[in-house]
């Protein structure tokens, strides 16, 4: 376990009688790219909510490296290096992209509580935010309010906000949701280009993308982990073929 960047042990969660997570055991080694797949309603987003502390598990434990984080609040987990993005854009509509990312950098550097010095005085934070936006090809539109950005740019800003926290573990909830295929490939090339020090767990429905970018694939259905394996093993599995690849072929 000491080798995992993120691990969970026996996570359970139900909403009333609906079991959305059942005995989830997950190990994400440092720097790896894992894909989490499964049909809609399988409990993928719920699992991310549990790991990041936005939902409380009924049972089980979560570890970041060797440290247990099960009892920490969401913002404390972010401070420890665990961050997520959202399946549905969860951004700051009236802040410019630059302001939003600068805010995230300020929070990490501990500037966000200071209310006497002007924001432009924190040149290092602004510089860092701008560099992140530049690396995600958002620099040209970074002065515009978020709500005016193209949808694809907003998806990139989701990732930019997460990167500004300098994560060790990055959980991407359908980063390309709603993005046309062409742009989706671009988006994943950005994700593939992320620092090798960040462990990434991403949820994605397009199996071509999954096979291309994932080192390992975790398949969920009805709140359980059905199986995990290398892309090859998953592609060969009859159950997955039936549930997933068959459907993917139809569109």
């Amino acid at each position: 376990m000491s080798t995992s960047a993120l691990s969970t042990r026996g996570l359970d969660k139900s909403f009333g009688s609906l079991v959305v997570a059942s005995d989830i055991e997950l190990d994400l080694p440092p720097g790896e790219r894992y894909a989490l797949i499964g049909p809609n309603g399988a409990g993928k987003t719920t699992l991310i909510n549990l790991i990041t502390g936005m939902l409380k598990p009924d049972k089980g434990q979560i570890f970041l490296g060797a440290d247990e984080i099960t009892m920490l609040r969401p913002e404390e987990r972010v401070k420890c290096g665990l961050v997520r993005t959202f399946q549905i854009n969860t951004l700051f509509p009236h802040l410019s992209a630059l302001e939003a990312v600068t805010l995230a950098v300020c929070e990490r550097r501990g500037y966000a509580g200071s209310w006497w010095e002007k924001l432009p005085a924190y040149g290092d934070a602004i510089e860092e935010a701008y560099a992140i936006l530049l690396s995600l090809r958002l620099a040209a539109s970074c002065y515009r309010p978020t709500r005016e950005l193209a949808y694809g740019q907003q998806r990139l800003l989701e990732i930019a906000l997460a990167l500004a926290t300098k994560p060790k573990v990055l959980l991407l909830d359908e980063p390309a949701a709603g993005v046309p295929q062409q742009e989706s490939a671009e988006l994943f090339s950005v994700i593939a280009g992320l620092s090798q020090e960040i462990a990434v767990l991403f949820i994605e429905h397009d199996m071509n993308v999954v096979f291309r970018f994932a080192h390992r694939i975790i398949v969920m259905a009805a709140g359980r982990i059905l199986l995990q394996g290398t892309p090859k093993e998953i592609a060969a599995d009859a159950r997955v073929r039936e549930v997933y690849l068959g459907r993917a072929r139809h569109g």
Partner: peptide, 18 residues
């Protein structure tokens, strides 16, 4: 800026460590 962040999206704020 952090206050405006809370006004704009109180759900995102903890997710960026605020």
């Amino acid at each position: 800026l952090a206050l405006r962040g809370i006004r704009e999206n109180a759900i995102r704020m903890p997710a960026i460590g605020a």
